[in-house]
């Protein structure tokens, strides 16, 4: 198949590290620079690198465009649901401290869930952009 052995091996070595780093940036965002937005892009970069080396079809078999779309919506919904949850719990929109009895733990829960929503949406939107530019989002419309 692919003759570029250096690229293939290099990518295989790098991609797990990139994903791991993405997770670190995602869940360490409340203490250090980072957060959902940066982590989402790092995640998407891992997938895009994989697609560049091993082909779009291989990636789309693992991560189908339909699922990417759904996740993009779900991430945004998660974000806003937390806001609505805190409104129902008696606070203002996105006021995390009312979510749990312990205000400090509630703040952590709130920010982690919010950033998860951001991370999911940013990663999936970046992947959607890549899929669209790679031109295979809607094969039935290729002629148009």
């Amino acid at each position: 198949m692919n003759p570029h052995i250096v690229l293939r091996v290099g990518a295989k070595l790098l991609i797990p590290v990139i994903v791991l780093f993405g997770l670190y940036v995602q869940f360490h965002g409340e203490y250090s620079p980072g957060g959902g937005f940066q982590a989402g892009i790092i995640f998407a970069a891992a997938l895009i690198l994989y697609a560049l080396i091993f082909g779009l079809e291989t990636v789309q078999r693992a991560v189908p465009p339909g699922a990417v779309h759904a996740l993009a919506g779900l991430g945004a919904l998660l974000y806003m649901s937390i806001g609505i949850w805190s409104m129902l719990a008696g606070g203002n929109f996105l006021e995390y401290k009312v979510l749990l009895a312990d205000a400090q733990r509630a703040e952590i829960l709130g920010i982690i869930l919010i950033e998860l929503g951001v991370g999911v949406t940013v990663a999936t939107v970046a992947i959607t952009l890549f899929y669209s530019f790679a031109g295979r989002m809607r094969p039935e419309q290729d002629g148009g």
């Binding site: 945004a76 919904l77 806003m80 609505i84």
Partner: peptide, 10 residues
């Protein structure tokens, strides 16, 4: 409207 927008995607 902001909450309904991603719902419509489904």
């Amino acid at each position: 409207p902001l909450f309904a927008a991603p719902l419509l995607m489904f």
